[in-house]
Design a protein around this nucleic acid. Structure first.
Lengths: 111, 111
DNA sequence: CTGGATACCTTGACAGACTAGGCTTTCGGG
DNA sequence: CCCGAAAGCCTAGTCTGTCAAGGTATCCAG
């Protein structure tokens, strides 16, 4: 039973990527693996979503890329969080908390 | 300063509408007003999102419509939750809880 | 040598919220 | 009496962002 494509991810992926990079620079493929592991496969990161997201973030100056080498010795594009990215993450996180709190007030009242 | 269009809403609007109708039948306009009030304006329901969403839900048999009269005596389309809608809401809510829990594990670790 | 994992990239489709209009009716104020 | 705002509903088109499905190249195991 494959998980249906998840519209809930809309808008949160960027923040998830930024947060991942707070633990240190990583290449794209590793970011996806780490996210899936951390969310216990609850959130699947498709490569067709991942790479466009990385470009978006780089273009906005929130992350910076540099070609390097993966742990396994492969060529890989290593991303790191910029100062602006760190600030954006704070904003995104706050926004996300406000939003989920609002939805919870509707969906899960009296808990 | 208008709030930028919120991609986070993607996918949650349907559940919010269904949940609203668990408190009794309402017309579209009232659903939007109730949601904005309950979320303290945190979530703005645009009519361009609302009405298409209502059609979607009606087409899926999750809500049912009937022309009637609003509290102010105006002509209004009154929606009520169907049995299938109630079941869908349970699923959507569970899905939403799983998803937000996963995101929280990433975004808000060690809390 | 074949298949799978690692790693990156891209095109096109699609879903869904939003913009920006439009319509009618009612009501209150000037 | 007129005008504007609020109550209600509707929709065509745009935009954003995820996804499916392809592609490339390298390396290693069997």
């Amino acid at each position: 039973m494959p998980r249906p494509t998840n519209p809930l991810l809309h808008g949160t992926l960027d923040a998830l990527i930024l947060k991942t990079l707070t633990w240190g620079p990583r290449h794209g493929y590793a970011i996806a693996r780490w996210l899936e592991e951390t969310t216990r496969d609850e959130i699947q990161i498709e490569e067709g979503s991942l790479y466009p997201a990385l470009y978006r973030l780089e273009e906005r100056g929130l992350i910076a890329a540099e070609w390097g080498t993966s742990e396994l010795g492969r060529k890989a594009k290593i991303y790191r969080l910029t100062t602006r990215g760190r600030a954006q993450l704070r904003e995104d996180t706050a926004e996300w908390e406000r939003f989920t709190a609002a939805v919870s007030r509707v969906l899960l009242p009296a808990r």
